[in-house]
Design a protein around this nucleic acid. Structure first.
Lengths: 90, 90
DNA sequence: TTGACATGCAAGTCGTCACTTGCCTATCGT
DNA sequence: ACGATAGGCAAGTGACGACTTGCATGTCAA
């Protein structure tokens, strides 16, 4: 999961899904290109989405030929807690 | 910074520094080997510490021939916030 | 001052990762 | 049915990352 976050393009994808959840692969490609200036290929984005899904950060739902991608921030929550648990004031 | 967290050994180092802050390189080496079962060389740990320091997660202080490593969790805090900022109830 | 201790530097190796390339499957509209 | 759209699979390439190896620097105790 930390490895999934290690790539800047994947973090931008999470940004994009935070702004508008449930996008398809092509929608994400288009918005990354226009809004974020990233010129990544469809296959590259697809592989990034696979990585994010394997990490549990993205869940997918199929409807016909469309596959919608939803962000899931649950795996992120233990991150900060992990290294601040034994410190006072938390 | 996310790349610094992508490595499991580095995350274990942060765990160790959370448990006992201000350790030297050799102390970290010893405790990783005994408590966490990691058989990493001194040089490997040293390079991991460099990576963590570059990421701002570790700060160092020198005293004579000893170099103490202190964890700094400040860079971790924006992580979760980044992708939950615009969602309700947060 | 000399040897042991704690750390630093740099080149090289090997595996992994991001990306491409090429082709394939599936679904929808007409 | 046929073309167009949305997505999937897999091999190959180039670069980066983790680790090793070997030596060098700096510090302290005796």
């Amino acid at each position: 999961m930390f490895k999934a976050l290690a790539d800047g393009t994947r973090r931008t994808i999470l940004d994009e899904l935070t702004e508008q959840d449930g996008q398809t692969l092509f929608e994400i490609c288009a918005r990354l290109a226009t809004k974020h200036g990233l010129a990544s290929s469809r296959q590259a984005i697809s592989q990034h989405l696979d990585a994010l899904e394997s990490a549990g950060l993205v869940r997918t739902s199929r409807e016909g030929r469309y596959k919608f991608h939803h962000i899931d921030t649950a795996p992120l929550e233990p991150i900060v807690e992990r290294w601040l648990a034994e410190r006072p004031g938390r």
